[in-house]
Nucleic acid binder design. Structure first.
Lengths: 215, 215
DNA sequence: ATCCATTTTAAACATGCGTTTTAATTTAAA
DNA sequence: TTTAAATTAAAACGCATGTTTAAAATGGAT
């Protein structure tokens, strides 16, 4: 009855859970194979190396997320006349779609993305740019249209500030939610962190640029 | 004439440079001692462990920075009637003071802080909270006064978004500056990144909260 | 000059890592 | 049923890490 789970899937599932929790470098193949109940050598047999395993874990999500995002951005561009907030809202649906990949897909994906960005894994950045460079370019262009008052180089920097805040919110999310619950007696779900984040990001992106604030 | 440099200082100087460049975990004691021209065992002899060395590296800066920051915040609080931007500007002078510790102190310190925050080193967070917890509380309170429309829990989250964006801007700074220079033919100095960052952060912090944007 | 505490040195230790090897086992096709 | 390919298994390899040990060197104080 129950669908047969291959060794590769067992490895991918165990790996992504541990990666999202501890980061890529901190997670050893022995941890992964123990958790997955498979032999240590099977990772190298099926994937070739740890690097390749990391890419495979990310690919499962990126291949769903990126086309959906490109779709949303294209629709918005066709419509025209949009705000920064509209651009950010383009991320909501593609992110929600990741539930189809995995139950807690959206949260897992953001955590993975966080560690990928934090540990500056050259090979992952290269992989993303090679496979989804057009989507990134489309995003930058869309954001520029929403904020024509900002120069391209300004937008470049702010986009990375946005990435930084997002990634950090996710990676330190569990710890911060714990502290917030203790200090303010207010439990915050993971999804609600994003709701708190988006206004912050939009406010930052829409702010006047530094050159115009210099007297 | 030339001031005698002790082994401990040689270690601290080599360690902070390597830590700021590669992060704490990525930097080995052998790298540090080779760079410092001292014996491998001297790190454990003088500092006890790698963890303790990391704390010692951070302490040199925190012990200068934190009191200065507390001073600035106290003055601002006494004055009353201030904006978010004013709060952030309180960081400029204490940061600039770090040049007295080391020539490129401000940049080094932010990079170290970035890695400290990125690699969630429990012992470093504990150290900071134990020694400078009051300053952090003062900062949170000051920001709350500048934005009374935000709830304390909202401010808590946004402060961490700010930290995330800052830390990331610094850690990925060198790589991003390189890309920016290549793509836009515009060289950006490290100090100017902060000038680009502050308006972004202030805009994000001042944004309307999510609850007021929900229809 | 002698002595003793401090410091430096070289070597080894114990551990964990990713990877490779070789053999046993399972699987599916002929 | 036989045969060959695919997969799993156990063990070892080579390497890098932080730490410890024990001897040698150093430097002031007596």
């Amino acid at each position: 009855m129950a669908k047969r789970i291959t060794t590769q899937e067992k490895i991918l599932n165990a790996a992504e859970a541990l990666f999202a929790e501890q980061g890529f470098e901190q997670t050893s193949l022995r941890q992964i194979t123990t958790e997955a109940n498979v032999n240590l050598a099977s990772v190298n047999y099926h994937f070739g190396s740890k690097k390749a395993l990391i890419q495979a874990v990310m690919a499962r999500y990126l291949e769903v997320f990126m086309p959906k995002l490109a779709e949303q951005l294209t629709v918005l561009n066709a419509r025209g006349n949009f705000s920064t907030r509209d651009v950010f809202d383009c991320f909501r649906e593609p992110l929600a779609e990741l539930k189809q990949v995995r139950k807690h897909g959206p949260t897992l994906f953001l955590s993975l993305l966080g560690f990928a960005y934090a540990e500056i894994q050259g090979h992952l950045r290269r992989y993303t740019m090679e496979h989804f460079g057009e989507v990134m370019a489309l995003l930058l262009d869309t954001l520029h249209q929403a904020n024509p008052q900002l120069s391209p180089v300004d937008m470049f920097w702010r986009l990375h500030f946005v990435l930084g805040a997002t990634v950090f919110a996710q990676v330190s999310g569990p710890a911060l939610r714990e502290i917030a619950a203790a200090d303010f007696g207010e439990a915050v779900a993971a999804d609600q962190v994003i709701d708190r984040l988006i206004p912050f990001l939009a406010g930052g992106l829409d702010a006047a640029s530094h050159s115009s604030t210099v007297e």
